[in-house]
Structures are given as structure tokens and as C-alpha cells.
């Protein structure tokens, strides 16, 4: 029961969703949508495990007064505050939950996203410390594309934007296609190994 049933379920679920693509039968498509709904419910249920995981890990640290325990306590309290506000007060516009979302969550999210600009500058610095022919190719292409996308590019050479477009549409696309086709085969092989039960490390076997 412990080993065989999960393998059979994996096979049936995998085969079902492959078949779904080839079967246009309306009833079957409707069934596939319902089964997809089961998966959504399962994924939603796992959030309870997630909250408990956060609680277990941080409780231990707070209880043992480990370094930064006060921050762990703040983390857990914030989580419970949002849980309470969202479950009992709802999540629609104008609720306490929504107020906290707009005034705390959103600015921090936007700032983290904005930090990418600094990080990309640091990454560019790393990229331009050219050591090999391959690194040089990456750096030169990056510079050409960057120049071609700002007005100064056109000032240097009238056709710079067109040249950048050409890089994107020809050599860039060639490499991209090779990666995409390779990844497709890798994904198919991985999917097949999972469905046929050849690969089951992720499920444990004890």
C-alpha cells in the first residue's frame, strides 16, 4: 500500500493529463477541469502545513532565545495578525487585511523588485571582467543590445536600433531555440520517468 498505491496514482494522473490533450470529448475535458480542481484543493490544503512549518521552526528559536529570536517572534505575530484579519474580516478592499497589504506588503515588494537595478549593475560589472572568449561574447552582445535600446545608440549609428533588433531576432533566437528544444526533451524524459515510476526519489521509499 505504501509503495505501490502512490506509483499507480502517479501513473494514472500523468496518463490522464497526457490523454486530455488528445481527447476532445467535452465530457472528458470537463472531467479534466474537475480533476484539476482537486489538485488546487490539495495545494491549498498544503498551506496549513506551511503555516505549521513556520510555527515549528520559529517557535524553537524563540523558546531557546536563539540569536534574533525577537525577529522570529515578530514574524510569527505578523503572520497570525494577517491570518486573523483575513479569515475573520475578509480580504476585500477596505478591510484591515487590505490596509496592511497596501501599506506594508506592497512597498516592500516593490522595493525588493527595484533593488534588482542595483544588483544588475553589480552583475554587469562581473560580466564585463572578461576572462574568456565566451565571457567576451556575452559582454559585447550585452553592451550592443543596451546601446541599441537607448537614444544614444541612434546618435552613434543610425542603424543601431535595427542592428540590435537583428541580434535579438537572429543569433539570440538561434541559441534560445537550442535551449528550448533541449529543455523540451529533458522535460519529456523527466515526465516519463516520473509517470512510469522509474524516478521516485521525491516520494521517499521507506
Amino acid at each position: 500500500m505504501r509503495k505501490e498505491v502512490p506509483l499507480i496514482i502517479t501513473f494514472l494522473a500523468g496518463a490522464f493529463f497526457i490523454a486530455d490533450y488528445f481527447i476532445p470529448h467535452t465530457g472528458f475535458s470537463d472531467l479534466a477541469a474537475k480533476i484539476n480542481g482537486w489538485a488546487i484543493i490539495v495545494l491549498a490544503a498544503s498551506y496549513i502545513l506551511g503555516v505549521l512549518n513556520i510555527l515549528r521552526i520559529n517557535y524553537g528559536r524563540v523558546a531557546k532565545r536563539e540569536k534574533d529570536w525577537i525577529l522570529k517572534l515578530i514574524l510569527v505575530l505578523c503572520m497570525f495578525f494577517m491570518l486573523g484579519a483575513g479569515i475573520f474580516g475578509g480580504i476585500t478592499e477596505g478591510t484591515l487585511f487590505d490596509w496592511f497589504f497596501v501599506n506594508t506588503f506592497t512597498p516592500m515588494q516593490a522595493t525588493m523588485f527595484a533593488l534588482l537595478a542595483f544588483y544588475i549593475a553589480s552583475a554587469a560589472f562581473r560580466a564585463f571582467r572578461v576572462r574568456t572568449v565566451q565571457a567576451a561574447l556575452l559582454a559585447i552582445t550585452a553592451v550592443l543590445v543596451m546601446i541599441g535600446r537607448v537614444p544614444i545608440g541612434e546618435t552613434i549609428w543610425k542603424s543601431f536600433p535595427d542592428f540590435t533588433e537583428w541580434i535579438m531576432n537572429v543569433p539570440q533566437l538561434a541559441g534560445k531555440r537550442a535551449i528550448l528544444i533541449g529543455a523540451a526533451l529533458g522535460a519529456i524524459a523527466t515526465g516519463l520517468k516520473v509517470i512510469t515510476g522509474l524516478e521516485r526519489t521525491y516520494m521517499g521509499q521507506d
Binding site: I54, C78, M79, M82, A85, G86, I91, F97, F100
Partner: peptide, 15 residues
């Protein structure tokens, strides 16, 4: 800590 706590609670409720 604030970001992680609030976002964990936020996503739980949304889901």
C-alpha cells in the same frame, strides 16, 4: 521579518 510574516499570512488567506 515583517515582510515574511505578513506575506505568509497574506497568501494563506488569499489561497
Amino acid at each position: 521579518a515583517l515582510f515574511v510574516g505578513i506575506s505568509a499570512g497574506y497568501w494563506f488567506c488569499t489561497v
